[in-house]
Design a protein around this nucleic acid. Sequence first.
DNA 1: CCTACCGATCGGTAGG
DNA 2: CCTACCGATCGGTAGG
Lengths: 195, 195
Amino acid sequence: MPETKRKKASKKELIIQKASAMMRERGFPATSMRDLADVVGIEAASLYNHIQSKSEILQEIIYRTANDCNVHLNSLDETKLSSIQKLESLIRFHVQMMLDRFNDYTVMINEWSHLSDPYLTNFITQRRHYVQKMELIIQQGVDKKELKPVLPYVTMLTILSSVRGLEFWHRSAKKIDPQTIEDNMVSLLINGLKN
Amino acid sequence: MPETKRKKASKKELIIQKASAMMRERGFPATSMRDLADVVGIEAASLYNHIQSKSEILQEIIYRTANDCNVHLNSLDETKLSSIQKLESLIRFHVQMMLDRFNDYTVMINEWSHLSDPYLTNFITQRRHYVQKMELIIQQGVDKKELKPVLPYVTMLTILSSVRGLEFWHRSAKKIDPQTIEDNMVSLLINGLKN
DNA sequence: CCTACCGATCGGTAGG
DNA sequence: CCTACCGATCGGTAGG
């Protein structure tokens, strides 16, 4: 029955969305299924008609988000952008993920260690590949003299960490608009890299 | 009896040190007093002869670490360093905190939200003052044309976040030595700021 | 510093 | 989707 299935799917989405907000705020271990059920508006036991376990929720949030990051990074391969343009695209993409999908993105970078195997191991592998591809882009920029002779590893860390820092901005009441934040971060990081 | 007191104090230190390592790894909520007691080598109930509560351990770790940061920042007021030199000193101090006192520093920046009031409110206030002083240093550098016309808020976030990113480096098996990491981060950030 | 134990809460299941 | 409930584990205390 499509109707039933659609309703179920959307209820599952609601659960995951509320869980994402709660896990971002309190962290995975401090998020109880009873509190989650409360904000969804059902009893704790009823959650299990839509999801299999608390762990499954975390897996869904993290794997979807990680997948979107991978898709973006891979799409850069098929472009003819310069290294510096690729880096700018990466920075803008991550800033937008942090701002537009705040809960999911923050849960991914803060709570991944609470995944259980084999999902934990798989995530770590995915992330290793991701940062290696980023480092390769930076290395190519250095080789072509587009970038200063920076260490790709340190540069990659600095870029991803700076975006992560926007979590702090997001929580605060600062009245700087998102586009200004994005542009400033791009120029600060890119200026430190340009040759 | 000084002897007894000294012994007790050192046992308390041992408990806090082991707790710091465990809370860094798993987070505060996922750190159980029974697991902590195991690595200390006593029964869970015996922990309470040395500490008052699980919360007290978190408070001790965070307040000591925050205090050291405040002391360093305040010491800059009494120097005649330029804005850029002050920023470099700040970056080096935080990198060293992250590398030398990895557990404590990481617990502070990742687990502070699990403090309970009034410690939580007090910590947030302290942190707000800290970042405001940092922003003032950056603003002064902009005013004196030592720095590019960056936004102090975004710049402060970028610096602190970049240091936080070293947590990732610390966990990895990268064979870059600490001094190289520190120097690279200083040059990457300072080069992006210099006028 | 231990044994013994408390009430509360956890993730999850049975059965309807 | 609910009521009723499970065993496990939590932070912490009493008493010695």
